[in-house]
């Protein structure tokens, strides 16, 4: 009997739940234009997990990286949700570097 997978699955639920929190808060204060940085961070986490020999740490890094990638695709919809009043809207955002250029790209949404 091997409980590693179910334990990891349980931990994944928490990481995904955490995703809801940081997507909502992050969008409120920083705006959705951070999405390429969040996406990049997710890819880096997953890449980094390759070099960690501890199974739990490597797996959790991968799960966290995947939830960052997923969150990066949720930021745009979250921006709309707050603009239409479903979540508190904050006009002043701390914009990312190169926000002017990022604005011209199509933000991913799945």
């Amino acid at each position: 009997m091997n409980w590693f997978g179910l334990g990891l699955g349980f931990a994944t639920l928490f990481v995904i739940g955490l995703g809801f929190v940081w997507v909502i808060r992050g969008e409120r204060y920083f705006g959705y234009l951070w999405w390429p940085y969040v996406l990049g961070a997710g890819i880096l986490f997953i890449f980094g997990s390759l070099f960690i020999s501890n199974y739990w740490v490597s797996a959790l890094l991968g799960v966290f990286g995947a939830s960052l990638i997923w969150g990066s695709t949720e930021l745009k919809e979250q921006a709309v949700r707050s603009e239409i009043g479903w979540y508190p809207f904050r006009e002043k955002k701390i914009l990312p570097p190169f926000a002017r250029f990022i604005k011209k790209w199509k933000a991913p949404s799945l």
């Binding site: 994944t12 997990s49 390759l50 199974y55 997923w70 799945l110």
Partner: peptide, 23 residues
């Protein structure tokens, strides 16, 4: 150094699980 593939496998399962579930 041997690469540990479990992180990538877990990432793939998480992303696919969330995405497929969502859709």
């Amino acid at each position: 150094m041997e690469l540990n593939l479990i992180g990538i496998a877990a990432a793939l399962a998480t992303f696919l699980g969330v995405w497929m579930g969502h859709v």
